[in-house]
């Protein structure tokens, strides 16, 4: 475990905690895409199938449980919590994510490290994570403005991906057998998706104006 990966996991955890805090404190999920949260829950559930069968470290196991539990808690809040669900803008969150799920599954059947249930689902979760942010970015564009916490949420998610890419570069140079093409390529695609958001976020921060995404 290197510092980049640990920092990446921490920023990932912080992004989820920001979202949980925002929903819990404001009892509102305005500006948050339920579809993105459902995709993330699916990512964790399909990626951590080896949670009970394959023990890497206590850290890994604890983090996997935390990620699964927190993502399901967010989805549950947005769907079931009487107060929170009222503030969900259903008519803005219209990204047809089922096609994305299907495309990622087909891709995982074709491109995987080994044609086993566990490996296919792992590859599926990697591809799905790359595009899971799309409904959220579409919703932000639709709603025009980005409130602080949601902006910070996407910012920390982007930091997590960026740190993981540095972690892969670091491991590539320090470990002889390290190759993880599926995760690397997919991670690059995912970080690319954030790049435009980062650009507008930086602009709004620099010009000290409210973050406006081009419609």
């Amino acid at each position: 475990m290197n510092i980049f990966r640990f920092a990446g996991d921490m920023t990932h955890l912080i992004s989820i905690l920001i979202l949980l805090l925002k929903i819990y404190a404001t009892k509102s999920c305005a500006g948050i895409s339920l579809k993105t949260q459902e995709l993330y829950a699916l990512v964790f559930l399909t990626r951590y199938l080896d949670l009970f069968t394959d023990y890497v470290s206590l850290y890994n196991t604890v983090m996997k449980i935390v990620f699964i539990a927190s993502s399901l808690a967010i989805v549950w809040c947005m769907r079931r919590h009487p107060l929170v669900r009222r503030s969900y803008d259903k008519d803005l969150d219209t990204f047809r994510h089922q096609y994305v799920v299907l495309a990622c599954f087909v891709l995982a059947l074709l491109l995987n490290e080994k044609f086993t249930i566990q490996e296919v689902f792992w590859a599926f979760s990697i591809y799905l994570e790359a595009v899971a942010i799309l409904p959220q970015l579409v919703l932000l564009q639709r709603s025009g403005n980005v409130d602080n916490l949601t902006g910070q949420y996407v910012l920390f998610l982007g930091a997590y991906r960026g740190l993981y890419i540095i972690n892969w570069i670091y491991r590539y140079f320090t470990e002889d057998h390290f190759t993880r093409w599926i995760a690397c390529v997919s991670g690059l695609v995912q970080t690319g998706l954030y790049a435009d958001f980062f650009y507008y976020y930086y602009l709004s921060w620099k010009t000290n104006t409210k973050l406006k995404l081009p419609a």
Partner: peptide, 10 residues
């Protein structure tokens, strides 16, 4: 499923 081959990242 040897640990070396498993996915040791999150």
């Amino acid at each position: 499923w040897s640990a070396s081959q498993s996915h040791d990242e999150l």
